[in-house]
Design a binder for these strands. Structure first.
Lengths: 205, 205, 205, 205
DNA sequence: AATGAATGAGATTTCATTCAT
DNA sequence: TATGAATGAAATCTCATTCAT
């Protein structure tokens, strides 16, 4: 079926359509997560959004800005979802387990380390600052929780920053696949349970 | 400068000049580690080697091949150094600690996950297979050690693959820097100790 | 703040607000003079006017039209100011001097030659015709004056067109700056005097 | 006639062919003179040279560099030709006349003022500096001659800088065409004679 | 063994212009 | 009258690769 070619100028507005700016951001985020900054071109994003490159530049003045926005939105969302789970009224261990499970289920491997590396290399100083602040914020969320639980006596006293990063590092093990593409664990639930059991042994009193 | 005394017989041609092929490989490896596949161009490599692009193509038929070679060499070396340390006759815990310390000292963050991602995206199927095999090999080294120690009763029984990946994930925490660029730990030795203490709690009987 | 006393009757709508069309033209003129046709984008003009590009297109159907309008208005104004000065009842030499002084003071270097070049390259045939007519008109003003003064015997007989262009060429020397950005002459008055003295030697009887 | 398509890689070398770098520079110079910086794209230059854009970038790393090189070469050439004529052993007036005639004949209107304007707007600070130095150099050549002749008593004492710029300004009148494209003067020789007669009246003792 | 010259394809970005509101 | 959203075309520049020498 031949698609009618897009026309110049402002298109008629469809009420219940998502704002194009959001579509672009979501699409870009998805692509950047999958393939990284340099492997995704603005043309790729445009094509995936079914708009022209110029449209993307209408909303995001540079590729760096688009990446920055994508990272910021993503980290904000992650932080929120982390907070939400951490606030539930179940045991800390259960909360951590849920956190892992949900993240393994919800997302492809969101490899912060790599995002930050690409950011360092490719973003402007200002953009990088923004992204770093947001990243820090996200980590602090978990760090605070660790700190709190130390004080409550749920876990042993220790370096909260280290605990937080260790937790996240272990979480990422859940994504590991072997050479045939098979995951180590059968399900996200299993993964979460094993990972947290492992982690817990290290932090329990 | 004191000249070393002449050796007898016909001197080998340009004795202490490393073969250009090796220079290229080492330089490329260093650059790829720092900036990744897409951020390093063949021109970058050439310039860093003080040769022309054509020279590089003389030794490595494509960029993908150069990357592949770089990865293979690197993983081989890592595997070797791991093996060496694991064979020492000190306690397993001490061997692990030494392993971590040496790696934190010797290298910038060699983020395998990221190398593999770039490989997946950018290499040919054949090149990727090679790299995956080598990666697997490297991991298996640690996995085997874990397996062995389980059988020896040094650590508790569990999923050796998971243990190995957890170990590596925790090791990478040693590279973490905060926003001001400061490391979490004061020295590689401290980092190694803390990390292994943490890990050990999870795997001890 | 003291309010000015109400005037009787229905106030004209937004009395002291210049029509937007004029604001656009003036702004565009200023920018085109400073940077030329190709270096100023419609977005630049829009931004400088604090309106959107679409607004500019509402008044001027193409960039070429905007440029044309700008040139026409400018040349018209210049022609008028020339005429005005030439009609004063002081000696011809003094009129010329005043002309130079006023132009050096009033404007940045309005380099007609360049405007016409950009016009030739970028305008439609019709637009170009309009602009050329206006340019010619402007030059003719001075040419006529030269002709008249020849007949009056104020200056020697010669090629009036050549005299006119020579006059303008010498006038433009008043804008010259050296490499450090310093002008050759201390003030516009000095410049005007020197230039006209120079010119006068060539045209006096 | 179908042209055989160019092939990849280094082409076979033709002995008596001009170096491509020179061809590019000459072509670019010609185009920039005719249409200015912004109106000539790298693609235009490439096409006119019958090479690809990449070839141009092989020799000149940015468009600004190409423009800079073009200006530098041009000004160098002009300066040389000026010097040559000024060194001849005929009267100063005759030398000036010859200078004008030759320049009107040899070149399309080389409008330095405009080149410098485009340079100011479009070049990097460093490139601009180079160009300005070269421009200055060119002007100084004429200025020095003026100075010398003042001292020799050939012309009246005055501001040599001003004299030099006046001379060049008047020279450019030789290029003037009216609306129908007709020149003011019948030939370059006539133009030169009239212009220098005019100039001479202003500078003679 | 190594290079210099060249290319084709594609990347980011800019810009004049259009059109529904 | 004025705007916001979108486009097509082109501009600058990059890069992996090729090939004669």
């Amino acid at each position: 079926m031949k698609q009618s070619p897009r026309v110049l100028g402002r298109p008629r507005h469809d009420e219940n359509a998502k704002p194009k700016k959001d579509i672009v951001l979501e699409t870009a985020t998805r692509l950047f997560i999958k393939e990284g900054y340099k492997n995704i071109s603005m043309a790729d994003v445009a094509k995936a959004c079914n708009v022209t490159k110029a449209t993307i530049y209408y909303y995001y003045p540079t590729k760096g800005d688009l990446y920055t926005s994508a990272l910021l939105a993503m980290m904000d969302q992650i932080k929120l979802s982390i907070l939400q789970i951490l606030e539930e009224s179940i045991s800390f261990k259960d909360r951590l387990e849920k956190l892992v499970e949900i993240h393994l289920s919800a997302t492809v491997d969101i490899d912060m380390k790599n995002f930050m590396r690409e950011a360092t290399i490719n973003l402007s100083e200002f953009q990088l600052k923004e992204v770093q602040a947001s990243e820090n914020n996200m980590y602090k969320t978990i760090e605070h929780a660790m700190q709190l639980e130390m004080e409550l006596g749920t876990i042993r006293k220790g370096n909260a920053t280290f605990f937080a990063h260790s937790f996240l590092a272990l979480m990422s093990v859940g994504y590991v696949k072997d050479r045939e593409g098979k995951r180590i664990f059968q399900s996200e639930a299993t993964a979460a349970k094993e990972i947290i059991d492992f982690f817990w042994k290290s932090v329990e009193k």
